[in-house]
Write a protein that binds this DNA or RNA. Structure first.
Length: 111
DNA sequence: TTGCTGACCGACG
DNA sequence: CCGTCGGCCAGCA
């Protein structure tokens, strides 16, 4: 499959869609998987542009290194992000994921 | 075309 | 402990 043509941005969406339901990952983990650990910011920015994609991007499964819902404000300005995570069986309290270590899905390790 | 910004991360003082 | 700064890459005015 010649999907190597996908740019950094495209790969972010690709990996994000590969995140299994009920699991979460971090921006840095995705960036590192793409080969650019320092470009973690781009991963977050890609999520912001995820609205431009026809496919749904489970951006709510992507949180920062601390397991905190840093991008929840981009989900409509409400706690919808926590609701989505809770809907998948992920417990969220005070904008931070419980048992983050156990729910953490590392693309470098799983893929 | 140039410059700024951005849902991060790690290092430094 | 906490605040600040640099770096990474792509999109947009």
């Amino acid at each position: 499959m010649n999907a190597e043509k996908a740019s950094f941005f495209d790969k972010v969406y690709e990996v994000a869609r590969l995140i299994p339901q009920g699991r979460v990952t971090s921006y840095g983990a995705i960036a590192e998987y793409l080969g650019s650990k320092g470009s973690a910011r781009m991963v977050g920015w890609a999520m912001n542009n995820s609205h431009s994609r026809n496919d749904f991007i489970p951006a709510h499964r992507v949180v920062n290194r601390n397991g905190m819902l840093t991008g929840k404000h981009h989900f409509g300005g409400s706690n919808m992000m926590a609701e989505l995570l809770a809907s998948e069986g992920i417990e969220v309290y005070n904008d931070h994921i419980l048992d983050f270590d156990k729910l953490f899905w590392d693309p470098n390790k799983e893929l």
